[in-house]
Write a protein that binds this DNA or RNA. Structure first.
Lengths: 319, 319
DNA sequence: TTGTACGCGTTATCAC
DNA sequence: GTGATAACGCGTACAA
């Protein structure tokens, strides 16, 4: 565990010279550079990242804030993030919040305590107002809509996206459509519901199914659906996983898809293809990549980014 | 961005006293403690984690090494890890390797450079021999079998697990069984195949399907399966996702499951339930939790842990 | 009970 | 080209 001073001593130069060699700075004679490199090799020198971090003030880390690491919905985001981070020699500290406000605060506290250089928030319950109080400690980027101008955002405009999906259903001849949302009062659920009421003539309160987050929830929805006296002819889900949970259980319950009930998912997760799930493909991996870039660039003084990406219909057999 | 020295000045005490207050050490008069706390509040003191880290030599971080963050197989592991880490105020740095040796090396290099306190390796292509060369720099734990005695391991014994699964199939009356493996020469694939040859009378080389990792691979397997002249009566998959990909596509191709082909998965992923997937449940979340604990305890001098957990049959309708 | 002084390992500044 | 030396912000002997 030789440090820079040991190397300096061993090569009979100053620590400054060693530092110059390490960082490939100019003004080092070939001879001394040679000596230093040999000393590093001989003593097995390994630069201590902690010390570097304290000295430079940069951690080379971002914290990624998300509700559940094991929810496949976030998989593609994280994939994009990971790839971008690798290219810039950055590390990702994952922070699972389970939608708990105190956990979101703890995650952003890392910023305050100089434990990370920035934060990438994929989903949050915290208000943007509160989030802005952390902004002074480093760049923050979100994957959600409605961010103030101090916070970078790369997201899908869920109003437009849902509008598009609902029009796909309409054009396919489905008039009585229900929608299946995750947390009822999340910003994305609110605008989705708004799009639904604005777009669908037969839209009605009771065909808004809220609180469906996982494939198990989707499975559970089947019985709720079957108990309706008057059922929609199609269901538009806000997540492929919930849609698949529903699809599997519905089929097992003897429902014919799409004859009895049509299903439209949202995400474009690969596993949906195996089951022929019709879905709206969301460019989540691109979003992950762009979020990383935005956060990274902001550190070098680049302005806040606000970008909205669009979804596309991915045809399947459940519609 | 007041530091400990600013607080000391403002409260008119020494930095030692401030440090004592921060760390709740004894030997501070109530009056000075009061003054320090007020100063911290007034100046908005936030302890700098980088400096603490350099001073104490502990980062409060582990690196988690895994092939793909977005592969649902790792979801439950990571969930267990995240929960355990939260309880101990540790952070998880995720490192995605895509099974690339150089990436595994980079991940473990974090250990050498004092960027993390330990490493948790969920899957690896590196030999244990090489992995041991990193052991001097911190505790390493793996979720795979066959670790040397310097490396902690909490895993499923895939030989026994596969044996159990194969017996489930036998007892259900299936004699002609095929197996579907991930990477052909991974340690787990090798022992799984061994269990297959040892356990199944009709086992044959061509009913070993290798290279199936994702749900898309499972989907792809259907055509390979259909082109066989002599087909097995049941397929035992090494992953629920691959099994589901196969199940979806097979059903869409008109195959009756389990009449034409029975399907047994491996993992116990929630989404399998919606499709009635019969599977072997692996306690991956427990493994994640135990891996964290093992790594953590080792730092305090606890001995290396080697533990093998068992899988259980989870009944479904695909068998 | 309190404070001074130093170490942790690096980079940056400035004089030579 | 080169090298002292001062930061960075904390914990902690050791002295008082």
């Amino acid at each position: 565990m030789a440090n820079i001073r040991d190397i300096a001593k061993h090569a009979d130069v100053s620590v400054t010279t060693v530092s110059r060699v390490i960082n490939a700075h100019p003004y080092v004679s070939d001879e001394k550079r040679e000596r230093v490199q040999r000393a590093m090799k001989e003593l097995g020198y390994l630069r201590n990242q902690q010390a570097l971090t304290l000295s430079t003030g940069r951690t080379q880390r971002f914290v990624v804030v998300l509700p559940y690491m094991d929810h496949p919905y976030y998989g593609l985001f994280v994939n994009g993030l990971a790839k971008a981070a690798l290219g810039k020699d950055y590390r990702l500290v994952m922070w699972q919040t389970e939608y708990r406000l105190d956990q979101e605060r703890q995650a952003l506290d890392l910023l305050k305590h100089r434990e990370v250089d920035g934060a990438i928030v994929l989903s949050h319950t915290m208000t943007f107002e509160e989030m802005e109080t952390y902004r002074a400690y480093g760049p923050i980027s979100v994957a959600t809509v409605g961010a103030p101008e101090t916070i970078s955002s790369v997201h899908v405009d869920h109003y437009t996206a849902f509008q598009t999906g609902l029009r796909v259903l309409t054009e396919a001849g489905y008039e009585d459509v229900g929608i299946v949302l995750s947390r009822p009062d999340s910003p994305s659920s609110i605008v989705r519901q708004q799009a639904y009421f604005d777009e669908v003539a037969s839209a009605r309160e009771r065909w808004v199914y809220s609180g469906y987050l996982t494939s198990e929830d989707g499975k559970r929805l089947v019985s709720a659906f079957l108990s309706e006296q008057e059922r929609p002819r199609a269901l538009f889900f806000s997540s492929d996983y919930v849609a698949l949970g529903f699809l599997g259980e519905a089929t097992r319950s003897g429902l014919q898809v799409p004859h009895d009930i049509a299903v439209l998912g949202f995400d474009g997760h690969p596993i949906g293809q195996a089951f022929g799930l019709s879905t709206m493909r969301s460019p989540n991996e691109d979003i992950g990549r762009a979020l990383f870039e935005a956060t990274f660039q902001e550190m070098t003084g680049a302005p806040v980014v606000q970008e909205s990406l669009t979804v596309t219909y991915l045809s399947g057999t459940t519609l």
